[in-house]
Nucleic acid binder design. Structure first.
Lengths: 242, 242
DNA sequence: CGCCGACTTGATGCCACTCAAAAATAGTGG
DNA sequence: CCACTATTTTTGAGTGGCATCAAGTCGGCG
């Protein structure tokens, strides 16, 4: 897997199937431009208009929904290799916002062109479906966490998932990685209050399970914590496509 | 839209784009067989093996995840016209179960054949992506409900969504429809205890908002309740595809 | 008729929220 | 480099929403 300098789209889809040289080339030609965005530049608007979506190549972003009472539900944090705004091109999505969490780099591509390409190289279409399906599996797992796990398990599960996803894209180890979130982000992602997040973090730290300090996460005993949180990374692993 | 007797797949996808006669025919040829399933026959297993998925044509089903402590999180209730098990073919999904809630009828189709067809009729592929994206939008809305809405708004939002979805497929009116769920189902879908579900239902009834009795739902003032619950059906409406 | 699943209601308790505010940290301009 | 401000983190006290425990009612069905 020595494609670290090739196209972001190529890297993403190669997680789901082995690309031939020809396929890689074709994909690479889809990338329109590299963009650098700062913290306050939302990118939900960008895409809708000109039928483009993005792949995140550096930094963190997050997608969220704002309720009328001003509260916020964060749907997912997006890291290197994740699609941004792909779903918004395919369905209404009312009011899902996407915002950089740090300064980010993204590569832009056109959905039309991608679909067009799918007709010539069918396997690519499967890969895109698989990527979409994986995102859906992640959302479902968050739903389960918020619906049926206590605050502590929920928090633990969250950091375990994050660790796995980051390790997968070479951004750290599953039990030790950089993480630029604030406790407010955690609160809005996990359906808790920021204050309670703080207490739970303390509890996790004092129990020797996990430390989250100054933008870095340490997980003491990954196996033990996985059991505690009911974390089974099965839903994250891409699986071979036809 | 007088295709009520045509193929289920045709009906489903025609929500997202206008099919030509040729396209309809091609799609119709994908359906392998009609199955009738009873309440206790799960169908997660069925699909995975032989690469088939289903469209629900009659009755209700639901998808859920079981946690190790025995609790259950229902992800979605599926009604006529919804896909069943499509995502499971594309990603691992660890342990998402799908089960009939009533006796149901489904039409089976092969994912491979569907993808294959997409290469010849590209617009179909867009429609499938759109259908998947809509399911994702629904899941996200559930996430928001559980994460950030109080029990009463959450319950109201749930019945409002259900009403819209049922009306869309001609299974009732958005403010009055048949609904075979038990309070336990509601509890596991909404992240509440069954007992609390009961109290909230009573409150909704006494406040004159909504009645759920003997498998039937009445919504008094749809507009008012929508405001109360923060329900905006935008995320449900299919939107034109390229 | 007796059983069982679904629904209902009351009492009690805890988990997580809100309100309030201080301490630590980071960012900014003089 | 330091004062100043904004953000983030931390802690305490009090409250409330929702869970749990317990038990009784209703209707359907063998």
């Amino acid at each position: 897997m020595d494609r670290s300098h090739s196209n972001a789209l190529t890297q993403k889809l190669s997680k789901f199937l082995d690309l031939t040289a020809r396929e890689s080339e074709a994909l690479a030609s889809l990338a329109r431009r590299q963009l650098t965005l700062k913290t306050d530049q939302g990118l939900s608007e960008q895409g809708q208009a000109n039928h483009t979506a993005f792949i995140l190549t550096r930094g963190w972003a997050f997608s969220y929904i704002l309720l009328q009472d001003g509260s916020r539900q964060i749907v997912d944090f997006r890291v290197s290799g994740d699609f941004l705004g792909l779903r918004g091109l395919l369905s209404p999505m009312s009011d899902l916002f996407i915002e950089p969490l740090t300064d980010i780099e993204v590569t832009e591509f056109q959905i039309d062109a991608l679909l067009e390409m799918g007709t010539q190289v069918p396997r690519l279409m499967s890969a895109i479906l698989a990527a979409l399906a994986r995102d859906q599996a992640i959302t479902v797992e968050h739903l389960v966490s918020i619906g049926r796990r206590g605050a502590l398990e929920r928090m633990a599960h969250f950091f375990l998932e994050l660790g796995s996803r980051l390790e997968e894209v070479g951004q750290g180890r599953k039990d030790n990685y950089a993480c630029p979130l604030t406790q407010y982000h955690l609160a809005d992602a996990l359906g808790l209050s920021a204050i309670h997040v703080n207490r739970i973090l303390r509890e996790l730290r004092e129990e020797g399970h996990l430390t989250f300090r100054k933008g870095e996460v340490f997980i003491e005993d990954h196996g033990q914590l996985s059991t505690l949180a009911g974390f089974d990374p099965g839903y994250l692993k891409p699986h071979p496509v036809f």
